[in-house]
């Protein structure tokens, strides 16, 4: 099937700004789904609120555009009711880790078979460029005219500590790599997190003088390095990309099924 067949083409061109990274994440995700040969009817996408969350309107899967930060809670409900479906949950950085921080850590802890995608542009785009818990120190935002003093979360470390059994990071510059990690994440049985650094040229880029969208992609190329690479060894300040966690652990729906069997004493 062609990528376009997975889109609700009637809503295109999409609402995102010229050069917005979220469109590249959408493309990587669709390439992953296409390469895996998944059927549209076997996929459910839930999303929360924000520029990122518009993504669920554009895909021709089952979709739920839900409450701010609660996309994972809705996905958990769907997955427990229909464990055979593939759950894809793209979220913005604020959606995933500020408003939805609790849902995020607990979904990871349970190791429920859901693919969470953190589209990290380090800012609240839709509401006008407020800083987020992923902005980091020394960044300019509408709510930080004198620069931020807040430390940021490291999505990879947080997901790992909370118990996610697959954790990877890439960027929109590395679209092919993102597609590969998304494929692995979707195939992984358990809670998987893929963080994709995604440019917001309109707010984050402009306020922090990172240039236009192509310049911001160039920065992703220059400021990141593959896990285990010489470049990363020489310069630990680079942001590591790669697969950080990939392990087998009891999956929540399966454990629940076992529990039901036990409680029924084999009468099921």
């Amino acid at each position: 099937m062609a990528i376009k067949d997975y889109l609700r083409q009637r809503f295109f061109p999409h609402i995102w700004c010229p050069g917005c990274g979220h469109g590249i994440v959408l493309s990587s995700l669709l390439h992953a789904v296409e390469e895996l040969g998944l059927a549209k009817n076997d996929i459910v996408m839930t999303s929360g609120i924000g520029c990122s969350a518009r993504i669920s309107g554009y895909v021709d899967f089952h979709s739920l555009h839900t409450l701010h930060g609660r996309a994972l809670a809705f996905a958990t409900g769907v997955k427990l009711a229909k464990p055979a479906l593939n759950l894809l949950v793209p979220m913005g950085d604020g959606d995933a880790l500020a408003i939805g921080g609790n849902h995020f850590i607990h979904a990871a802890r349970r190791n429920i078979n859901i693919t969470a995608i953190v589209m990290n542009n380090r800012i609240y785009g839709m509401t006008g460029g407020q800083f987020s818990p992923l902005s980091g120190c020394g960044k300019r935002a509408t709510t930080a005219p004198f620069l931020t003093i807040d430390q940021e979360f490291d999505v990879v470390k947080l997901a790992k500590a909370a118990g996610a059994s697959f954790v990877a990071r890439s960027t929109t510059y590395h679209a092919k790599e993102s597609t590969l990690y998304l494929k692995k994440a979707i195939m992984h049985k358990g809670f998987s997190v893929v963080e994709i650094l995604s440019q917001c040229p309109t707010h984050y880029g402009r306020k922090n003088k990172e240039g236009d969208a192509p310049d911001m992609l160039e920065l992703y190329k220059d400021t990141t390095a593959k896990l285990g690479s010489k470049a990363l060894e020489k310069n630990p300040d680079l942001i590591p990309r790669g697969i950080f966690v990939e392990e087998e652990r009891g999956e929540y729906c399966e454990e629940y099924d076992k529990l039901v069997d036990k409680a029924m004493g084999g009468a099921r």
């Binding site: 061109p13 010229p18 990274g21 590249i24 990587s28 679209a175 597609t179 969208a213």
Partner: peptide, 8 residues
């Protein structure tokens, strides 16, 4: 170009 185009 196809993979990086934000507008598909």
């Amino acid at each position: 170009c196809e993979l990086r185009c934000p507008d598909l």
